[in-house]
């Protein structure tokens, strides 16, 4: 608790013991107030955490519970006996290692491509002036307003008719195009429009004086983008990375229609195995979901450290 208080107070100087003067007394009072406020924040955080993570915690517990305790009444929260049978069942027959590899290849490739192309276009929309800019921007944004189910078939046909791929000739005939390939899987995720919009929004909050100064120094636009804007935008790039990865990793519909072979399937298709028409195999479903969620969580934890920079010095309180 003491460590926590030190953290909340933010700085060592509050902890320096002073003489029992009036000023020091007041300082101690302030310290107490802050400590109490800090404790209150933790209580609030914990309460929210219970609501937000409750279902996940239940999932975590469930994946280690023996079947008869899964839905016992009254509910058993902490398993009396920890079992790994659900993990064994989930991964014994299905080729989850392969699904993981496929999902990882697609998600990482898409994330890297997104980081570059989205921020590049976002920079252009935010900082470069050219005729037709607003029109192009809104036209691009508008593509997100069409439900995916009506463009699914045209997109599928496009992928199948992709020239010179999968046995196709130049006019896209004779073969199967990019169907059942990595490039076919990745294609719809290469540049996400929301990423372009996101980076544009954040770049607009960077003062334009920086650009003027750099241009005077003879820096090229690409240098300004890559050497000034990108380093200044680590939080938003982290956000984009998190979202791209999550979005691709969690997508179900596109992998469903574009892959046929077992060796091309992704983790989300793999999860479907535990849920059929009549019964849901809860134990293995929870165990497998847990494992499938881990990479996305790791990406989040790895990237969110960019949100902490500067907070100590800003001391921003809600």
């Amino acid at each position: 608790m003491r460590d926590v208080r030190q953290e909340i107070c933010g700085s060592r100087r509050w902890n320096t013991p002073g003489p029992h003067s009036r000023a020091s007394l007041e300082r101690r009072r302030a310290r107490l107030r802050r400590a109490l406020a800090g404790a209150a924040v933790y209580v609030v955080l914990a309460a929210i955490a219970i609501v937000m993570a409750g279902p996940f915690a239940w999932m975590l517990m469930s994946s280690f519970k023996p079947n008869q305790e899964l839905f016992a009444y009254p509910p058993v929260w902490i398993p009396t006996k920890i079992t790994f049978e659900h993990f064994v069942n989930a991964f014994r027959y299905t080729n989850f290692a392969r699904y993981f590899l496929n999902s990882a290849v697609v998600s990482v490739t898409a994330t890297l491509l997104n980081l570059f192309f989205c921020s590049l276009a976002g920079y252009s929309f935010a900082r470069l002036d050219f005729p037709g800019k607003s029109l192009i921007f809104f036209a691009v944004l508008a593509t997100m307003m069409i439900p995916v189910y009506v463009t699914l078939i045209p997109l599928f046909i496009l992928v199948r008719r992709f020239p010179l791929a999968g046995g196709n000739n130049l006019s896209g005939q004779n073969g199967t195009g990019l169907i059942n390939t990595y490039w076919g899987l990745i294609l719809p995720y290469i540049v996400s429009v929301f990423g372009v919009f996101l980076t544009r929004q954040f770049f607009t909050s960077i003062p334009t004086e920086i650009n003027d100064a750099a241009r005077v120094d003879g820096a090229s636009e690409f240098t300004i983008y890559s050497k000034i804007y990108l380093p200044l935008s680590r939080p938003v790039l982290a956000t984009l990375a998190i979202f791209s990865f999550t979005g691709v990793w969690d997508d179900f519909l596109w992998p469903l229609v574009i892959t046929n072979s077992e060796h091309m399937r992704t983790v989300q298709l793999g999860l479907q195995i535990f849920r059929s028409q009549f019964l849901v195999d809860w134990g293995p479903l929870m165990a497998a979901t847990l494992v499938v969620t881990l990479p996305v969580l790791l990406i989040f934890i790895f990237n969110q450290r960019h949100f902490v920079k500067g907070v100590v010095t800003t001391g921003l309180k809600g």
Binding site: L152, I153, I157, I179, V257, N260
Partner: peptide, 13 residues
């Protein structure tokens, strides 16, 4: 969904 897409794309099973 999967059948319709593959029939429309000319790659039906």
């Amino acid at each position: 969904t999967k059948l319709a897409t593959s029939f429309a794309g000319g790659v039906a099973p």
